[in-house]
Design a binder for these strands. Structure first.
Length: 640
DNA sequence: GTGCGAATAAACAGTC
DNA sequence: AGACTGTTTATTCGCA
């Protein structure tokens, strides 16, 4: 709980932080734009002739302040157009150009993300697609701007030659406004993309670096360049008059047009776009400048390609896993599009995989971060190969109903695979503590274990229980004390715990009793299981040999499914035919020793006749006969 | 909505 | 004193 709440708080906090920073940035841009529009709109009054004049002045006064220069323009023109559009600030175009600053994740950031290995293949794919989309958008914007710039220059030339007097300044304003709005939309879209990445934890903005690559207007351009851009735009209105073209409808697919006018635009364009040659193919001068300014582009591009190859590898692996999952689903008559419809044990494994995939698609070498495995976010798409130690770090406590609802018959014939799986994968076994404790005790030669031996069995048999030792050990003690089926016996070696199988079976069947339809369903599900493993059915016919089932070699998921099906069936059989309960050798330890105390509640003779035999330990793997101590493993305590 | 079983957390006491 | 063991209570969650 603490971990869950902590994680949530953390994620929420980061989301809030990211959101606020992003919105702040937007506000910053907006206010910046407004401020400039308020202060510099007088330039819009300048006619084209005056602008040309100022442009000439600009060549001689490169260092002068923009505001001062525009005041000068106003003095020269002395015009006050009543149709002046207040929304046409002198610097809006440069602002928009600044908006074209790449909003995509830098290669360094991409590399960082990949190195952190926090992305699932799906996330990587989505990320790359988003990146590519953004890059495309930026390229289109750049192309559009270049075309407009070209047109403006042509118009300026025409105007200079014809000496026409501007008449339709508002039309230019409208065009510019549309252009700016388009760019603003692009900027917002890109910022949303970045914000979403930050909220997902996919992108970490270092404190030292700007939250967004977007640069404020004043930082991106020097006043001279801003002024020239403005002149280029505003002086083109006369040409618009003749052509009558409507620039409000932006054609972003316009091909790149050469522009002889040097602009800061090229300096802040997307390096990826520039390396594609689409931008600067007609502008050698700009290209040189680009190459000098972005010397690392090739390397970054190479890094990006390498990363994309990694993503492709992951996608291949994912495709393979999906194929395997599909094959299994087909085999089990379960639609792959409904993975959540799988039985409970499958769900357990799947949910664990899911819950960790978002925050930790990393190998086991990475440190674990507490998460909330109880809240799967996305449907299962991974195959069983994903359910390995590389992605199954279930660190947080999981509240989950176990599948021993109808008792957990564990087939000794199937033990090997599931045991190997749970021994290596940190997957929470889909059994209750009580079932596991019982299994541990019944596996022992004497059918009795000390508490510490039970601990050892847990850690030996399940990688999952090599973590959070305090938690699950407390749970074990709690279960031993709570359930009447566990009997503490004073032995020569001290206190040992035994299983009262009758008591254990008593607590089973109440939920299924008197529900023929459920039993029917279980039997039908058993029919699904039939082709899986003939031995499984044989063990079912034997009526619950208490060990884990593994219906398919190397496929623990299927094993879990088969186990769930069989335990359901056994639960049903428990009430349909109650018999042969007394033949269980598991009761022998109870009879051999005398309980120190008895948890009250008298035995019910009826309930005592459970169908489940206590035959257990005859053929379990010798690997588990030894009490190898895992208790001192430091990993046991690493999450507390 | 409710009850139940299970998991989890924690307090507490006794023992070693 | 501290760890371990065992008991008990409370809370939360999932499920029927």
């Amino acid at each position: 709980m603490m971990q869950e709440s902590g994680t949530e708080t953390k994620s929420n906090g980061s989301a809030i932080q990211n959101g606020s920073s992003g919105s702040n940035h937007l506000l910053q841009c907006a206010s910046l734009r407004e401020g400039r529009s308020n202060g510099e709109t007088p330039a819009a009054d300048a006619g084209a002739a005056e602008l040309v004049h100022v442009q000439q002045q600009q060549a001689l006064q490169v260092a002068r302040q923009l505001l001062l220069q525009q005041q000068q323009q106003q003095q020269v023109s002395g015009l006050k157009s009543p149709k002046r559009n207040d929304k046409q600030p002198a610097l809006q175009v440069p602002v928009s150009v600044a908006m074209m600053t790449p909003q995509v994740i830098t290669p360094q950031q991409m590399q960082q993300i990949l190195q952190q290995q926090v992305l699932s293949p799906q996330q990587l794919q989505v990320l790359l697609q988003q990146q590519q989309a953004l890059m495309l958008q930026q390229q289109q914007l750049q192309e559009f701007y270049k075309k407009q710039q070209e047109q403006l220059q042509l118009q300026l030339l025409q105007q200079q030659h014809a000496g026409k007097q501007p008449k339709e300044q508002p039309q230019v304003a409208t065009q510019q406004l549309a252009f700016q709005q388009q760019l603003l939309q692009m900027q917002q879209l890109q910022q949303q993309h970045l914000l979403s990445l930050q909220r997902q934890g996919l992108l970490t903005i270092q404190p030292g670096q700007p939250a967004l690559p977007l640069q404020p207007l004043a930082q991106g351009m020097i006043p001279t360049e801003l002024q020239q851009l403005w002149k280029e735009v505003t002086s083109a209105h006369s040409a618009e008059e003749t052509t009558g073209s409507n620039h409000s409808s932006l054609d972003l697919t316009t091909t790149c047009v050469s522009s002889s006018a040097p602009s800061k635009t090229s300096l802040i364009m997307n390096p990826h776009a520039s390396t594609n040659g689409q931008l600067s193919v007609h502008a050698p001068k700009r290209e040189r400048h680009l190459n000098s300014e972005h010397a690392l582009d090739d390397r970054s591009t190479a890094q990006c390609r390498v990363q994309m190859q990694v993503v492709q590898q992951l996608e291949l692996q994912l495709a393979k896993d999906k194929e395997r999952l599909q094959a299994m689903m087909t085999h089990l008559h379960v639609k792959s599009t409904e993975p959540k419809a799988a039985p409970q044990p499958l769900n357990l494994v799947s949910s664990v995989t899911l819950s960790k995939s978002a925050s930790e698609a990393s190998p086991q070498s990475l440190p674990h971060t507490p998460t909330t495995p109880t809240a799967p976010i996305t449907p299962v798409t991974q195959g069983p190969s994903v359910i390995t130690t590389t992605s199954m770090h279930t660190v947080g406590p999981i509240r989950r109903r176990y599948s021993d609802k109808y008792n957990v018959p564990i087939s000794s014939a199937d033990i090997a695979q599931n045991q190997e799986f749970y021994k290596n994968a940190e997957v929470r076994p889909p059994f209750t503590y009580a079932s596991l404790i019982r299994q541990a005790i019944l596996e022992s030669p004497e059918k009795q274990l000390t508490l510490n031996e039970i601990y050892n069995w847990f850690t030996r048999m399940f990688a999952y229980f090599r973590r959070n030792a305090a938690t699950w050990k407390n749970a074990v003690r709690h279960n031993l004390s709570l359930h009447k089926c566990f009997v503490r016996v004073e032995n020569v070696k001290g206190a040992v715990w035994t299983v009262d199988e009758v008591e254990f079976q008593k607590r089973r069947p109440q939920k299924i009793s008197g529900n023929p339809s459920l039993i029917k369903n279980m039997q039908s599900s058993h029919a699904y299981c039939t082709p899986l493993n003939a031995a499984l059915q044989a063990s079912m016919a034997e009526n619950s040999i208490p060990l884990y089932t593994t219906a398919s070699m190397g496929n623990p998921t299927l094993g879990n499914l088969a186990s769930a099906i069989r335990e359901e069936l056994n639960g049903a059989m428990e009430h349909t035919n109650s018999n042969e309960s007394d033949s269980s050798p598991g009761r022998s330890p109870m009879q051999a020793v005398h309980p120190v105390h008895v948890k009250e509640e008298p035995l019910d003779p009826e309930e005592a006749e459970g169908p489940l035999s206590l035959v257990t330990t005859a053929n379990h793997s010798p690997d588990f006969d030894h009490d190898r101590d895992y208790e001192d493993e430091p990993v046991n305590e690493d999450m507390e």
